[in-house]
Structure formats: C-alpha cells, structure tokens
Nucleic acid binder design. Sequence first.
DNA 1: ATAGGGTTAG
Length: 767
Amino acid sequence: MEQALLRILRTLGSTAHLTQAHARLLAAGLAASPRLLPALVAAAFSAHSPRYAAAALRAAGPAASTVSHNTLVERLAGARPRGRRPAPAPAPADALAAYAAMRAQGVPPNGFTFTFLLRACALLGLPRPCGCVHGQIVRCGFGSDVFVQNALMDVYHRCGGGGGGGVGAARQVFDEMVDRDVVSWNSIVGVYMSSGDATGAMGFFEAMPERNVVSWNTVVAGFARMGDMVTARAVFDRMPSRNAVSWNLMISGYAMSGDVEAARSVFDRMDQKDVVSWTAMVSAYAKIGDLDTVNELFDHMPVKNLVSWNAMITGYNHNSRYDEALRTFQLMMLEGRFRPDEATLVSVVSACAQLGSVEYCNWISSFIGKSNIHLTVALGNALIDMFAKCGDVGRAESIFYKMETRCIITWTTMISGFAFNGLCRDALLVYNNMCREGVQLDDTVFIAALAACAHGGLLQEGWSIFNEMVERYNIQPRMEHYGCMVDLLGRAELIEYVSKKITELEPFNSSYQVLVSNCSALEGRWDGVIDARTSMRNWGIEKVPGSSSIQVGSEVHEFLAKDTRHKRRKEIYETVDGLMALMRHTEQAHWDLFVARYWGYSMLDRATTVNMGKGDLPIVLQLYQEDHRSFDHQAAVRGLKLISPSNSCQRWEQGQPLDKLVVTTHKSHHHPGVYRNQRSPHKALIRSILAYWDTRNTWNHFHLVHSETVSYSATQSQAKNGRFFHCPALSPLLPKAGAGGMKLGDCCLEGPRIRWWLNYPGVHSEI
DNA sequence: ATAGGGTTAG
C-alpha cells in the first residue's frame, strides 16, 4: 500500500490527482507516514500548491517528521528543480514562515533545516533574517554543525552583516567554529578574495591545513575578478592539479580583461573543453564584435545548453543586431530542447524593445504570460522599457505596478518611459512616489527625472529636483545632470515659442528658414547649448549609433549609420532618399498633433545640426494613399521592391492597399544621461505615433515616418559592427504560401513544444 | 530518496 501510494505521488499529473492520492493516504491511516508525507509535500509543491503542502503538514500535527517539514522549507527556499517540470518560484519569506509553523507544531529542526533556511536568507539578501536564523541555530544546538556553519559563513558574506560587506560576520563565524573542514577554509579565502583583500585571502590560503582544487580555483577566481591576470596566471601555473573549472576561470578572466587572444590560447591548449569553455569564448568574441568567430564557435560547439544560446542572443544584442538576436531565439525555440529562462527573456525583450516592432512586443509579452515565467525584477525592468519604447505606456505602467519588488532601475525605467512618451507630468508623479517610498536613490534616476522635466519644459520642477538632489540627497551633479539643465533652459523657452508658431508653419520649405532664423534669435542661448554639447563630445561621452529601420508587414529591416557592409547599400540609400524626396513633393501631407509635439522635441537638435551645416528638416509624415494625387506610385513601388521584394509589395503594385509600411530613419544624436545607452527619444516618439495608429487599426494607410536629426558620425567600430539586415526574424516561421487559414499580416511560429499564432493586431490564440 | 556547504560560462 505504502509503496503504491509512493509511486503515485511521484508521478502526479495534476492537483486533482493530488487530492485523490491524499484522500487514499488519509484513508489508509498513513497521514504522517515518514515516507509518504515528504513525497506528498513535494508533489503538492510541484503542482504549484505550496499552501496545500502546508495544510497537509498542519493536519498531520506533531507526528509529521522533521524530514517532511524540511521538504517544504527546502522547496520554498528555491531547491534545484527536479525533473522536467518547472518549479514554482522560490518564496524565501514563506520558507521562514514554514519554519515558524514547524516549531509551533513542536517538530524539532535538524541541520538540513538550517541549510535550507540559510538559502532562503541568501535570496532575501538582508542581514537581519540571517541573524535571526543564526540565533535559532545556536539555540537549537547546531552551532557546531560544520555544514550549517559553512552555509552561515556564505550567507553572511552575501547579505552583509558584521561590517565590511559581510566579511566581519563571516570571519566571526569562521573564528568561532569548533571544527573546520576544507570547505570552511575555502569559504573564508573566497570571502576575503571577493572583498578585494587578496593579502588577507592569501594569509588564510597559506594557513590551510589541506588544499584541494577548489581552494586553488578560489584564489585564481579572486585574482581574475580583480583583473589581475598576471597573478592569476602565476597561481594557475603553480597548481598541483587542475580541473575544467580552473581552465575556464583563466578563459573568462582573460576575456573579462579584454584579452581575447590570451583567452583563445588557453582555450586551444585545453584538452577537456566543456560547454562552459565554449560559451565563455562565444561571449568573449561577441564582446569584441567579432561575430564571424562567434558563429563559427557556436556551430562547432559539441554541446550547447541554455546558457550558450543566451550568450548568442545577448551577444547579438550587444552588437546592436537585434534582428539576429530574435532569430536566434526563434531557432532555439524551434529546436525545442531548452525552455527559455529569465535571462533569455530579458535579452529577447530588450531586443524587441530596440526593434520597436509592436508585433514582436505583443508576441513576446504574450509568450511570457503563457509560459509561466516568474516576473523578476530584471525581467520586469526590461518589459517596462520595451512597452515604453513601443509607445504603450499603459502596459509599461501595469507591469510596474504588478512587480512585487522594484529596484532603482525599475523606477528609473518607468520615469524615462513616461518621459519618452511625452507624459512628463506622469514621470514626475512616479518620481514623487519614489521619494515617498524612501528608496535609496542614485544619480542616474535624477538624470531620468531631470530629462523628463527637460522634455516637458517643466522649468520650475526641474530646478527644484536639481536642488533637492544636491542638498537633500547629497548627490554631486555630473555632466549629464548639467546637460539636462541646459536642455531644460533651452527647451522651456522653445516649446512655448514653437507651440505658438506651429500652426503657421508650412511644411518643409520656407519653415526651415523661418526656424533657423528664429532659433538663432534666442539671444545666444544656443551658443551655450552648443558649447555644452561640444564639450560633452570632447569629454568622450558616447553616443548611440544612428539607425534606421524599415518595416514591411511583419518584417523589420534595420541598418546602422555609416553602414558600409551591405553590397547594395548604395541602391538602398538611394531608394530611401527617393522615397523621402517623393514625400517632400507631396502636397497632401496630413499633420496632426503628434507632428506638432514632435517638432517641439526636435528643435534643439535641429539647431545644432544647422550649426554644423548638415542635415535636413525633421519630417513626420503620414500620407494617406487614397489622397495623394501627385504621388509617384510607380517609383515608390520600385523602391519598395528593392527594399523588400515581398508579397505585400506586389499587391500594392496591383492597386490594393498596403497592409503596413513603416519607414523610420533617424540619425541619433547625443542626449545626456538616460539616452546614453538607449535610443534617442525621437524613436520613442515615432513609436508612440505608430502605437497610436495601431490602436486605430488603420494600417491600410501608407505611413512614412522620417526624422533626421543631428548627424555626428558613428565611431569606426560601431560602423564596422553595423550591417544591413535582410533576414527578417520571423521569415523562417511564416506560413508557406497557400497554408490554410492564414491571412496576410499573420505570423506563425511552430515548434515541437509550442505552437503559437500571432494574429495581428495583438490577438493571440493558441491552437 | 531531504541528498545540505566552497570555484566557472549569459
């Protein structure tokens, strides 16, 4: 009977089966069976019912074994997932509560209980719970259990406590230990190494009664982390024996210090290369932008795992090849061997954000919703950024409020998200809430807040935030903060001016001159602005490379500024120029509020451009196909065919409305602070326009969106890594012609494990 | 059959 029930509990499929098995267990009088109850707890937990598990334990009362309680504590603390089923997210606070319940029942803990609890403390990352658990350990008589003490050392080190970033507390535990084994010594060496105290660490290393390969690895890892590869190498050479980890430490150490050649030579000399070695090399080459080698390595890897795929995806992201990043993700999904984890999705979400395609964003967020992935802080941050960049601030906001824990990046992203979309007042509301919640602020969040003021022309608010930053939060303003203030001063006047003038503006021609003269009439203010920008450039503050993207139907083509690699670039640029010229000569331009707002934002940069004697007017156009009489349809078709010889183009040629055509080109420009590592706010604005049209579902129109702003050229390396993409991420997944039930604009993704349909606009259904 | 603590790749 007991055997049979045990077998059933191990192979449970659903919550319903769980209840049935539990009922039989109760009927057989085995409710507190030391063999069955732990299995029941584990099964309940795997069925995503931690509460059921806790209830079963409570019902069993004091008869429940320590082991059965430990099972729950262990799972709540985030045990390694067993089997192929995804485990529920860890709930460290609940683990502590489960311990309290256990004690309340009078069930005695053992050493295992405390190692699990300490893992929960590590997840919480706070010194206080560590102290509480430490107290329990001592009181329950486990103060000399070497496993528990080792875990305690580690957790104090991670969570801080006792001063010196946890070194003090860890040291104290070490000193008070009655018995120490090699792990204890390794731990204390590791603690000193990662606190940067190599001398202290080496003192312990020399004093160790015995060393194993991990002891040596800990030292090598320490020096490698500090960037001291010379010493790391010396230690490595002295090692009596090495394992794969030792070699991998050298590879990743050299890669981190930027010496890919050295990493390569270690890799080549290694005869026990494993996935870690290969993956480390993949990311090393991705880091220096050598994507050919990256691909070659990836193709030759004997074994790939999820981390290898993730390294590829983030490698592409790192080189601004977002399309390739998505394609890699799709390939991984098609292969179906690995479930994406949080790291995968963070990368994929940021690729989607950069591509700015509303379809991809919908697709990936729907995917995340359905795949039961825990919304961690990093993933939440990425999602907020993605939705904000796609112009869907509403969804960005709802993610923000859904998040259980937020970090300073969350707040910063939300503030910039509102500001990107022109909702500067909302950005400041978030800022105020943040201040009220007593979050530890850093200087970056002030850049976001000040940029929000600058965009909204909120002069007073900007000043008060600036002063608050300096006086109340004691943050030294950096170049970026001053940059925002310069923007703010310039823009506040300008927006007022532009909003008066905007109705008088004629498109394209004379207005250009009008604006130029008016800009320079702003009493020398511009000189200050331009000076500041020039000096920022001289300071070496990086700017984002300009990029353009062309989206036809569901395909996104992207190329970067100063791109020289594509063979047909000349034709392509000519085509785009031609399309722009067509737009310029079309009289039936429809301007709306967005245009006005866009004008307001781009003025500053315009002035700089003028000063540099470069560029053209920023243009945001929506041309309604039905309307344009003087539009050269044939020329546009020719151009489009060159860019994308797709179905939709032929249909358009035959006089049918185009499903969707969006051309955005922009050259990026320097924006202080927040925009340093992100795209220019202009792109965000364009996206908000796109989102606006998306909500109206009026894609039967022909939209051309063009903005050309400041044109500092991209650096050589940026240009080198840039490339024209003509491999749409979804194309291998698009349905074959004639596949039943698919309409134009639908995308299909099929794999052994998943089968999704993306049915534009934003309606997802699973088959 | 709770399978605990120290080192490596995103």
